[in-house]
């Protein structure tokens, strides 16, 4: 079995995924990722011509089957107060977050 994802690559993925992991979790996840990639490698054995279309979905959407574009008209949605009430921290209608990292331009 091939170890596709070494600890360094794994650390990079964790950063990209906006996660942080303890050791036990990291060990489990890296092992499972590598196990899954060994399964995925089975696809390499499939003879592809190379001109097969990329299927973003299964069922085709010919025009007669596709919904028409919506009209540009206002539709009621959930009340803004209900939506805002779900935010973990709100002040006077604003969602509060800690400092947003930024770099001052020279």
């Amino acid at each position: 079995m091939t170890d596709h994802i070494d600890p360094q690559t794994f650390e990079r993925l964790v950063q990209l995924a906006a996660l942080e992991l303890d050791l036990a979790e990291a060990e489990y996840l890296r092992r499972e990722l590598n196990n899954q990639l060994n399964v995925i490698d089975e696809m390499a054995a499939i003879p592809l011509r190379g001109d097969e279309p990329l299927a973003a979905r299964g069922v085709p959407y010919p025009p007669e089957n596709s919904p028409p574009l919506r009209g540009d008209d206002w539709q009621p949605d959930a009340p803004p107060a209900d939506i805002l009430a779900q935010a973990p921290q709100v002040d006077d209608g604003y969602i509060i977050v800690p400092d947003i990292p930024h770099t001052d331009l020279e």
């Binding site: 995925i40 696809m43 390499a44 499939i46 592809l48 097969e52 279309p53 990329l54 299927a55 973003a56």
Partner: peptide, 8 residues
């Protein structure tokens, strides 16, 4: 590649 396999 997976999307092509999906076509198959």
């Amino acid at each position: 590649r997976a999307l092509r396999v999906r076509t198959l």
